[in-house]
């Protein structure tokens, strides 16, 4: 690599080079640093709440700061206001249920759209449809929440909900009352809109990478288009597809604003039907930090931290699994610009 010319290099160019590589190395390690700091601080901050509640943190239903201005009690070596109880089960259930509904709605739509984009359309139609998917990815969650409050919730309350209650005799979870429309179903619908672009973009990318001669082989065997997709393409991209779904799931669980706006902010209760108000972990953190600051023992803040810890663990696990699956099946590295992947 031209060592002789390197020797003639002015000394300050060498110093600039060293400085640059060092600065670049530091910058490259900053995401890792942030990740470690976030996990570490959330973990340390949640220890008092976890000691206070023990395993009941995961199984309890009551979320109560206790009498903040009353006497303090000491339990398991930590201090909190009398009557404080932090049971996160409703929020964990709300998070899992709303994201599950989102996936049930989003998976068929996303896979269908991805197949259409990858195989069925080209030219203007293709770029128009992909722009639509990208636009959907670009809509801020708070704007989706606004739409959810103004349009979707009334529609769920007056049209979709009453329609679904007809299936109540067969599936008890669909029984009414429908309520205001702010609740589990609306949260799931809004989340589905946020998840669709993620699954669509990744799956489409994977479908376009299926080698052409595999598909040609299928056609030569006399398969129909659908059979080619079903028996050749989908098995080929299976890992990546599951990964992209996990990616969307992680995002649905971590979404805050849209859900906060349409979930109905339920506390101390588990959802009893598809329309009942819920709260998710992310929404509770955003909603309650204000009042948690009034707790002089800081136990309320620690409890929110524990909630953040559970959420972080869930999303990190799904993300780790998703990235491994997607990267393994994607082969070469490429990310879709403009889409949160």
């Amino acid at each position: 690599m031209g060592m002789r010319t390197m020797k003639r290099m002015p000394a300050n160019a060498k110093i600039a080079n060293r400085l640059f590589v060092a600065a670049a190395g530091l910058s490259a390690s900053s995401p890792i640093l942030f990740l470690l700091l976030i996990t570490g601080i959330v973990l340390v901050q949640s220890i008092p709440a976890l000691r206070w509640m023990g395993w009941h943190f995961l199984t309890g239903i009551t979320w109560n700061m206790g009498s903040v201005y009353g006497a303090m009690t000491v339990k398991n070596g930590v201090t909190a206001p009398a009557g404080a109880s932090y049971g996160a089960l409703p929020f964990i259930v709300g998070t899992l249920a709303s994201s599950a509904i989102a996936l049930v709605i989003a998976i068929p739509i996303s896979l269908g759209t991805a197949m259409i984009l990858a195989y069925r359309v080209r030219g203007v139609v293709k770029s128009a449809l992909s722009i639509v998917v990208e636009l959907l990815a670009g809509v801020p969650s708070v704007v989706l929440g606004l739409w959810g409050v103004v349009v979707l919730a009334p529609w769920v309350s007056s049209a979709l909900g009453p329609f679904l209650t007809h299936f109540g005799p067969a599936i008890p979870f669909l029984k009414g009352p429908v309520g205001t429309g702010m609740g589990l179903l609306t949260s799931g619908l809004v989340l589905a809109l946020m998840v669709i672009p993620i699954i669509t973009a990744t799956t489409r990318d994977l479908l376009e990478r299926v080698p052409l001669h595999y598909r040609e082989g299928g056609v030569a065997l006399g398969m129909t288009n659908w059979e080619v997709v079903r028996h050749i393409c989908l098995p080929h991209i299976r890992d990546g597809m599951i990964g992209s779904i996990a990616l969307g799931w992680g995002r649905a669980m971590g979404e805050t604003m849209a859900v906060l706006m349409v979930s109905g902010s339920a506390v101390n209760m588990l959802p009893h039907n598809l329309y009942s108000p819920i709260s998710t972990m992310a929404a509770v953190i955003a909603d309650q930090l204000d009042s948690a600051m009034t707790d002089a023992s800081h136990m309320a803040v620690h409890a929110l931290s524990a909630l953040a810890l559970v959420l972080l663990m869930l999303t990190l696990l799904t993300n780790l699994a998703a990235r491994l699956l997607v990267n393994r099946s994607r082969g070469s590295r490429r990310i879709d610009l403009g889409v949160r992947v």
Binding site: S29, I38, V42, Q45, R251, G254, A282, L289, L312, T315
Partner: peptide
């Protein structure tokens, strides 16, 4: 590969958790 992977994982951290982290620190 490690930086790439962990950077992608960082992008998966819920934004409210980042906000909460910012509040505490």
């Amino acid at each position: 590969a490690a930086v790439r992977f962990l950077t992608e994982v960082l992008s998966g951290v819920p934004s409210i958790v980042i906000g909460y982290f910012g509040y505490l620190t």
